[in-house]
């Protein structure tokens, strides 16, 4: 037996010694990195632009809507499942129809998903006839078919700059808003082109629409006149089907009663009682105006909507519920009038 007590072998000091300076360098670099990261994070988080208030663009005060000015409350929301939701419409049986990505998704009036209709491209606007025909506007093409699908290519809007933004349909005609040409195209339901509405014509006292960005809405009202948004003039105009300008209302203002920014409203809908629903971009506000254009109430303001992904399309069902597309969250928010006891008016 060997009683020799063996001492453990010493670590290979030679090896360690060889790496020591490098470990030091690494530790130093890691420390520097951590300090740099921490300092830049601190800088980003805490060091604001040291600018005088005159250089700050501040519209915060216009984003606040006093609660007593909001006459609606959200009663339901529907998750569309769309990443890029662009449009909302209502079917003849109050079906909720959402467009986005490369499809149209159809829900019951209570928000139960029924089916989806695939599309060849991003839908930009939707319209539904009383008989259940679905019209989908792509950039310059209108697709048509039953609400259950499939849809067929039906019309091509002339002009290289065509940019469809809205459609309105009745038993005779389809009206297509084209923000590129700044006109409303009028088609018969057999596809014949019947005319264009809104070209500048001083003899008819038509000034021409001002459409700075691709938001240009049209609808058909029960008085038989078209209502067309003239966004650059902050007005809702009423035109006959033959293109005569009958009246207009609306004014630019940051106040709740007016339309904010350079060009608004972006979207328009009609309540069953003849009042109008408007939606504004920039400072997202959905509001109700009476048939003569007098402000009635706000529906929802910027705090209730995520508009990072774009402005909010609006639609109305037969019971007067207001459907607001919340594109940032891919939701359709449904609003109904507050019960009278909750209202301060």
């Amino acid at each position: 037996m060997n009683d020799e007590v063996r001492t453990p072998a010493p670590p290979d000091r030679h090896l360690l010694g060889r790496w020591t300076p490098w470990i030091g360098v690494l530790v130093f670099a890691a420390l520097c990195g951590a300090i740099f990261t921490a300092s830049s994070a601190t800088r980003r988080d805490r060091e604001p632009a040291d600018l005088d208030q005159a250089f700050v663009y501040d519209v915060a005060r216009f984003r606040v809507i006093p609660p007593e000015m909001i006459g609606y409350r959200e009663t339901l929301h529907v998750e569309t499942g769309l990443e890029h939701a662009t449009a909302v419409a209502v079917g003849p049986a109050d079906e909720i129809v959402a467009g986005g990505d490369r499809r149209v998704v159809v829900f019951s009036s209570e928000g139960t998903r029924r089916h989806a209709v695939p599309l060849p491209d991003l839908p930009l606007c939707l319209a539904l006839s009383a008989t259940g025909d679905l019209f989908v506007g792509l950039r310059s093409v209108v697709l048509k078919g039953p609400l259950a699908g499939p849809l067929e290519r039906w019309l091509t809007i002339p002009g290289e700059k065509a940019r469809l933004t809205s459609m309105a349909v009745d038993r005779e005609s389809l009206f297509v808003a084209d923000a590129g040409a700044r006109v409303i195209w009028h088609f018969a339901l057999d596809g014949r082109r019947l005319g264009r509405i809104g070209d500048r014509d001083p003899e008819r006292n038509v000034p021409g629409f001002v459409v700075p960005s691709p938001y240009f809405d049209v609808l058909l009202a029960s008085d038989g006149l078209l209502r067309i948004v003239d966004p650059g003039r902050h007005q809702i105009t009423a035109f006959t089907r033959d293109g005569d300008l009958e009246l207009s209302w609306g004014q630019a203002s940051y106040a709740l009663e007016g339309f904010v920014g350079c060009c608004n409203p972006s979207h328009l809908a009609l309540l069953p009682d003849g009042r109008f629903v408007t939606s504004e971009k920039g400072i997202a506000r959905v509001k109700v105006y009476d048939a003569n254009g007098r402000f009635v109430t706000a529906v929802v303001g910027p705090d209730g909507l995520d508009t990072e992904a774009g402005p909010c399309d609006v639609a109305v069902d037969s019971t007067g519920r207001i459907l607001v597309l919340d594109p940032g969250r891919g939701l359709i928010r449904i609003f109904e009038p507050k019960p009278r006891r909750d209202r301060d008016d």
Partner: peptide
């Protein structure tokens, strides 16, 4: 890319006179 707006929100202070 510009809309050539009369009420340009890059030119006028919010809620100022035109």
């Amino acid at each position: 890319l510009c809309g050539h707006c009369d009420l340009c929100t890059a030119f006028f202070e919010p809620d100022s006179k035109l």
